[in-house]
């Protein structure tokens, strides 16, 4: 049982490692990634307005960026 468990961990690790080796692109393959809509934060203004709303109305903040200070009293 333990052996099977160890084997499955090794097998998973090998699969992940071999997967990782093929991660990424060459510089000339960045055509799609270079588009504005593929940026992780494609609209910083929307993100900033949303952060302000949810910080004021909910008990969580941050994650994507800093949680920061502020009042949020209302």
């Amino acid at each position: 049982m333990l052996t099977n468990f160890k084997l499955s961990i090794i097998a998973t690790s090998v699969i992940i490692a071999s997967g990782c080796s093929s991660l990424g692109v060459e510089p000339w393959e960045r055509d799609l990634l270079a588009k504005k809509e593929m940026k992780l934060t494609s609209s910083p203004i929307d993100a900033s307005l949303d952060d302000h709303i949810y910080f004021s109305k909910e008990a969580s903040s941050g994650g994507r960026s800093f949680a920061g200070g502020g009042c949020g009293c209302n």
């Binding site: 991660l23 990424g24 692109v25 799609l32 990634l33 800093f66 949680a67 200070g69």
Partner: peptide, 19 residues
């Protein structure tokens, strides 16, 4: 942040905030 392939990008963050 990791580019997975030509069509996919991923980000994983951990943050800690002390007030």
């Amino acid at each position: 942040t990791q580019v997975i392939n030509r069509k996919m990008i991923m980000q994983l963050n951990y943050s800690i905030s002390q007030a």
